[in-house]
Nucleic acid binder design. Structure first.
Lengths: 193, 193
DNA sequence: GTCTATATAATGATAGAC
DNA sequence: GTCTATCATTATATAGAC
């Protein structure tokens, strides 16, 4: 909501996000979510949401739009190819670190979506990742990067970035900015040869 | 088994491995496993195994021992630090690519183990990963690597390696050896700065 | 909006016939 | 070893009182 309050529906989504990350979607029951909301029995949730899978979909699609939004801002900028790639990578891992719960759904739990939504999600994610491939291609084309296999380079880069979600914790030793810079630089060195 | 046959128990484990990867542990029922074995109803499985979680444990512990075995062979060798690290990384990703189903359990599904086994697994995995950190430390100590934060370097390296399991397929464009070499080299460049 | 009670379906596991 | 039948449990979701 635009004011300082969060709707009941958003509170449910936030509770679900955290449980979906810590236990997994299938291991989280509607009663678990209700418990976290201090409601007695899962029935009350259905006054706000249509069902469990709808909750998963809302989290997944919200997450992917967060990645897109962060990426768009970088793509719109006027930077040299490699610096643009670097900024896109930093934007990507920043979304991961600032939205760890949603990122878990984005990376792992989305596969439990129903067929139609799962395919829609995968297509949109492919679209997002394709733009990284284009950034890498631009870097190779201008001679700043040396990646003989651009497809592999993209998979390598995204894989290295996405792994952050497995160990980064907000109360950890390194700040998000430090993690982002260290990771983006390590990936870029790998892509320069 | 030492001869050319596989025991019924092993057949069950192999069927379970594949289902645990493609659907996830919780989304796989004993009936699903029985279907894949062309058995009618999940009941027959219990003549061979004690239960579903025991199956998960068997796969998880077998996978971690495969990683250890591959790593041991490299550690026992007499190579300079960075080359030893390179070979350990290649051994690691080779296990992943040759055992994709088991790797899915090793990376994702082990969390559904019961408390005792889950903790035992995590401790053994930490032990395994610690040896990568020691290899990186040795590389830094001899001046061949430039990793100001060795803990981060270890997490970065393992993350980049482990990501392979998400996209590598045996019938893909690149051979396992190519993927292993490309990945290990990219990681090493990232660690040399 | 939340509560309790419940309908309906699926699950892991067991028992006993063959 | 495999089969069928079944038990106990748990799940999502709904209904109706308040």
């Amino acid at each position: 909501m635009s004011n300082g309050t969060t709707s009941r529906r958003d509170q449910i989504r936030i509770a679900a996000e955290e449980l979906f990350r810590t236990r997994g979607y299938l291991a989280t029951s509607m009663r678990d979510i209700a418990d976290k909301m201090k409601l007695s029995g899962g029935g009350s949730l259905y006054a706000h949401i249509a069902g469990k899978e709808e909750l998963l979909w809302e989290i997944a699609s919200d997450a992917i739009e967060a990645f897109f939004a962060a990426q768009m801002a970088v793509l719109a900028s006027d930077l040299p190819p490699v610096e643009k790639l670097r900024q896109a990578m930093i934007a990507h891992v920043t979304v991961i670190m600032s939205r760890l719960d949603a990122a878990a759904v984005y990376f792992d739990e989305w596969r439990h979506l129903g067929d139609a939504r799962r395919e829609e999600f995968a297509a949109r994610r492919d679209e997002y990742e394709k733009r990284f491939e284009l950034l890498i291609h631009a870097g190779v084309a201008c001679g700043a990067l040396n990646a003989p296999d651009e497809r592999f380079a993209t998979l390598y880069a995204l894989g290295a970035l996405n792994a952050i979600r497995r160990w980064y914790r907000p109360d950890g030793r390194l700040s998000p900015d430090q993690v982002a810079a260290l990771t983006a630089d390590a990936v870029l060195r790998g892509l320069i040869g």
